[in-house]
């Protein structure tokens, strides 16, 4: 299978929709771990976690960036292993 002409458009549309649901969900998480905590960093810093990290500092320096790595792998694996397969977009050979 290759190129748009051979793919029927309802299947492509459904595929596209399901893919967007995944992308938007992940983007909401991305937004939350990036932008929701810094405005409250000063008060969050009063809480200490793990070996003594101020919470506000830790959320930016470790939590957010670790979530980013996980988000990308979740996206890539869900797309490659689940969604692409469901709609028949699998590698040739």
């Amino acid at each position: 299978m290759s190129g748009a002409p051979g793919v029927d458009s309802t299947r492509l549309e459904a595929y596209w929709k399901e893919q967007w649901r995944l992308i938007l969900t992940l983007l909401v998480i991305w937004f939350a771990v990036t932008y929701l905590h810094p405005p409250f960093a000063a008060s969050l810093n009063n809480i200490r976690i793990l070996t003594g990290f101020p919470l506000g500092y830790w959320l930016s320096s470790q939590f957010a960036i670790t979530v980013y790595v996980i988000l990308i792998f979740v996206y890539a694996l869900t797309m490659n292993q689940v969604i692409d397969k469901k709609y028949g977009f699998e590698e040739e050979e």
């Binding site: 990036t34 320096s61 980013y68 990308i72 996206y75």
Partner: peptide, 24 residues
């Protein structure tokens, strides 16, 4: 101090956009 963390998040978080919206 804390203000420098904008670079840590900014220079990694972009890869989420890269994966979801650009690279493939």
């Amino acid at each position: 101090g804390y203000d420098g963390l904008a670079y840590i998040m900014g220079w990694t978080g972009g890869y989420v956009l890269l994966a979801l919206l650009f690279a493939p």
